[in-house]
Design a protein around this nucleic acid. Sequence first.
RNA 1: GGGCACGUAGCUCAGCGGGAGAGCACUACCUUGACAUGGUAGGGGUCACAGGUUCGAUCCCUGUCGUGCCCA
Length: 955
Amino acid sequence: MIEKNYQPADIEAPMSLVWEDSRAFKAGRPDRRDAQPFTIVIPPPNVTGSLHMGHALNNTLQDILCRFERMRGRDVLWQPGTDHAGIATQMVVERQLMERQQPGRREMGREKFLQRVWRWKAESGDTIINQLKRLGASCDWSRERFTMDEGLSRAVVKVFVELHRQGLIYKDKRLVNWDPKLLTAVSDLEVQQVEVKGSLWYLRYPIEGRTFSPDDPTSFIVVATTRPETMLGDTGVAVHPEDERYRDLVGKKVILPLVGRKISIVADEYSDPEKGSGAVKVTPAHDFNDFEVGKRHGLGQISVLDQEGKLSLVANEDYLRGLPEGALMFAEEFDGTDRFAARKQIVARLEDFGFLDRIEPHTHVVPHGDRSGVVIEPFLTDQWYVDAKTLAQPAIAAVRSGRTTFVPRNWEKTYFDWMENIQPWCISRQLWWGHQIPAWYGPDGKAFVAETEEEAVGNALAYYVEQEVITPEQGREMALDRNKRAGFITRDEDVLDTWFSSALWPFSTLGWPDDTPEVQRYYPTDVLVTGFDIIFFWVARMMMMGLHFMKEVPFSTVYIHALVRDEKGAKMSKSKGNVIDPLQLIDEYGADALRFTLAAMAAQGRDIKLAASRVEGYRNFATKLWNACRFAEMNACAKPADFDPASTKDTLNRWIAHETANASRLVTEALEAYRFNDAANAMYRFVWNVYCDWYLELAKPMLLGEDGPAKTETRATIAWARDEILKLLHPFMPFITEALWKTTAEREGLLALAPWPLQPKELTTEQLVMISAAVPNDPLMPPILPVFNATVFADAEAEAEIGWVVDLVTAIRSVRAEMNIAPATLTALALVGASDETKARAPRWTDVIKRMARLSDISFADRAPDGAVQLLVRGEVAALPLKGVIDLAAERTRLEKEIAKAEADIKRVDGKLANEKFVANAPEEVVEEEREKREAAVERKTKLLEALERLKKLA
RNA sequence: GGGCACGUAGCUCAGCGGGAGAGCACUACCUUGACAUGGUAGGGGUCACAGGUUCGAUCCCUGUCGUGCCCA
């Protein structure tokens, strides 16, 4: 029994249990051992995160694909798991400690802090998984992985060590993006360029050998800078080689104000004569461009800031080297000042001594940390890098050659642009939560990289024995005793960028580096579903790692979906307070409604502006489906085991079989092309506007009538079409369809594992026609399964007949509404000058038409009765005798308007046909179509004119 | 500065070389035997603007204006 009211909350939890108990989503089910696999790896959400709208969209689309392919018979693996999300998670735990006024991480120490993070992971790690389950995600939950699992960590170490051995991972001292708040390096991608209204400071640098005077422009050179505080670290001044103004100064030296250091003026094309004064100060340790300029001219690198962005001068050997006596006065004054306070202080000091020329307002872009939000500081440190440029080459080639394609295609350009200009990937992070880098250092800083500590230490000790730094005896002792080597050999403190482990996800989750059956069977995966915001972070890196270690692309298709925005198109963010919580929508309208909404709005290449009203609308759709199934149940509709819709006799039943085949084809083709919105909309229309509005309504008289073969057949067909609908709708609305599948009949299995209505694409239409036309009992033919062959089933005759009924009913309803005829008033209908076809059809539909168009009687007539409203239905006149009811003048106006419309059509077509070029150039069928249109319009006009004449006679 | 999208009904969006579509909202009527989370009917658009290509442009091309995003 189906409950009277559809309540999503009542069915969703039980259906989740049914799926879980039956292990329906398990990959490698024995019954699918020979099936073709279909694999998707989930973009792993942050283990301590919770479900937001982006997850809801992302996972809905993946689930639709997985359920679709599962029903098409494939062995589906949807690999779930979570990401340790280094910085994000560490920040959350540190914030917790702060809020609870507990000791900070540095006070706790590394080991205790990590225990704390693991505890937090254990507490909150299930949250997002359970939320994904509420959404209906049909992952193989038995295979859940975590990026810091033992197995995945083994993959990370193996990859690091191998890339290092191949020279593709190396340690280098260069400028990195340093986050002075989080105290770690970050990669280029974690830096956000923000436009900031600042100033351009013009500073006077005195030229060596001339007496500096603010009033004598020949005694100094003016440099323009956005960062006056870093001038303490200047090691040069650059001018453009072709800049006449400064030609004579190239090669000369300037005395750095406040510091006293003598630095050279160099000619370099980096300096833009149009910008500022045309001369720039060069600070190689604090600016990426200056770093390059400095390298070209052999300038020194003097870092004047510490890790926290404070000036560090008095204990700074690089800074002090070669400074004259007395210059230390300022060093002591500025030392320890934060960079922004230092800026003001230094500018003030420069002004005091006449070194400040002027200040101009200036808008420029400043790098900010995407997590911390503070200004990123280019900082000179040792970090580990991946040679991304080398790894990128095969990854570029794979997309160029089409082994991996992006959907929509235009994202490939974005991918190429980035990959072709890729920079070394800084992978070390000065954090604790993550995979610790498998590198050990000796006393001279030499690095030993190996998969295990034993191996690294062994290598190191052997090396230092050979170098005679230690004796063989000492080496042996250190090898055996960790305490003895402490202080001599130390492990790298840093951890790897989170995305390093994510890059391995498509194969590490399958058991690599072991050669597991899963790696063999499910790699490469079929499709990756993700948002464009992580194409660089994740997709590109999976391509690189997958190709390098597996020698095959990690996925053949990358489906890039849109961003979910709020109703007004703004990005959802906590600070704006416009976040729509998917769980709240699920509570209110059900997971099915939310899923359907997201699918229906997931048009390729467009962002989704989500309004709750849409979700409500699709909840109503679910209700409609629910009630349609109740209707079928109340009318005892059941499908016999041997039912074949292709052999139904009744026109109405053949029509719905025809329409169902059509819908199956539309949905299947749309899903194959990743056109989720087309698929969802096709189902919406089919269920509501075809099955409910017409099929069930047209069937009602039959169901209310006497029992008989036709009624039996109709009941069976209603049940059959309902089942087809439940199947086709299941990928979009899994809960309600599975629940209705269960309650509407005795079933052998779950809907989630039921066969999809359409034969797989591998069979061509021709093959299917051959199969369906095959002689029964032919021993050479494989047995024909009683599966409805939606690819080839079509019944044009049924379509035409039902089309006529629909048009007739619609026309009558329309004119009744226009004439304000009360629904309770029944009118008669006369079919005027009916063709033989109509004469044959009409009696079959008397009950239906009477009921639906609210008629008292249907008759045939040679001419329209006096005072009748005359309608044109498929070229024939249908008359409603409404003498006394209708307003003759209004009816006359109505007919005249119709005639004018017909005339306009004729005129438009005539215009085209009169154009010789059109007839000559347009395709034959287009011209033919126009001729047919003209003919139809002429006929319509003739009939309407006749009707008007008759009306006139009356007046 | 470079790149990628997008301007279609009041709103959110499909369509994309041969007569403008959907959902929501709106209006009128309907407690009709599945469903008021419903039914029936209806109003509403020089498809941003200007050129060009074409027999024919909402659709292709160019430009302008406007909006959004990415990169430097």
